[in-house]
């Protein structure tokens, strides 16, 4: 395998995350932190700024940054979908988890036991472990779609009838949720759903970096997965 090398201490290293995927990961993470920060303040604005209204554009900037980060996230998401089809096999995992594989579900179960301290040793994975894939798929992948759809529906209210955001999103999303205020509320709840993912994700990334049998944080930076033992990996068949 061309994407496998042996490190100096005789251990295997596999190139799992291509540059484009890593770039997406960090840009997306930055966009999401920005969206959470600005989104929170859109819902609960800070104290008033003094002076003439015409001299200030403070809340306008918060919204502007929210929308800019949103469009970066949307463009990134489209790019990530492209990678899921055109990238290497690890870039498929987030979008198309191996739901039909029994072995994969056994892996989810094993990881759950690992997190419940019921098993001594985790399995060894080149790609994401199945539990992580599950969380990423349902919380982040679908969470992102939810935020994009509700976000564009809210955005379309400002751009108005006739704009693509209104025609493609607002026109059906708003009646679907009831009324505009409900879309705001659900978009807001969606933020907390994503925040829960981010907490779990960052905690798990650091924990697995220390406790699992493969590298984590450095992998999302350099793309190379290194291992702490030489026994066979558990995800080379699916």
């Amino acid at each position: 395998m061309a994407n496998t090398e042996v490190t100096r201490d005789g251990q295997q290293a596999v190139y799992v995350y291509e540059g484009s995927l890593r770039l997406w990961h960090w840009i997306n993470a930055l966009a999401i932190f920005t969206l959470i920060g600005t989104g929170y303040f859109i819902g609960s604005p800070m104290s008033s700024v003094p002076g003439e209204a015409s001299e200030n554009f403070f809340f306008g900037w918060i919204r502007y940054i929210h929308f800019s980060a949103a469009y970066i996230m949307i463009a990134g998401f489209v790019f990530r979908l492209y990678l899921a089809v055109m990238g290497n096999r690890h870039s498929r995992e987030l979008v198309f988890p191996s739901f039909t594989s029994r072995k994969w579900w056994a892996g989810v179960w094993h990881e759950l036991k690992w997190y419940a301290f019921l098993t001594k040793e985790p399995k060894k994975y080149v790609g994401h472990n199945p539990l992580a894939t599950l969380a990423m798929h349902f919380m982040l992948f679908w969470g992102t779609i939810f935020m994009i759809v509700t976000g564009l529906a809210l955005y379309g209210e400002g751009t108005g009838m006739g704009s693509w955001q209104y025609e493609w999103f607002s026109s059906w999303v708003i009646p679907l949720f009831g009324q505009s205020q409900d879309v705001h509320t659900w978009h807001h709840l969606g933020m907390w759903y994503i925040i829960c993912f981010v907490i779990i994700h960052i905690y798990a990334a650091f924990r697995e970096d220390v406790m699992s049998r493969q590298s984590m944080v450095s992998t999302m930076i350099s793309g190379w997965r290194t291992f702490k033992d030489n026994r066979p990996v558990d995800d080379d068949t699916d």
């Binding site: 997190y115 301290f117 807001h188 925040i195 779990i200 905690y203 220390v210 406790m211």
Partner: peptide
């Protein structure tokens, strides 16, 4: 309750769980 109350409660539970879990992981190690 409003979206922030629900969300903060959920994030609080998740955060606390992560902290407890981290503690347990350190003990195990």
């Amino acid at each position: 309750s409003n979206a922030d109350e629900i969300g903060m409660a959920a994030a609080g539970v998740v955060g606390a769980a992560a902290a407890v879990h981290a503690g347990a992981s350190i003990v195990k190690r």
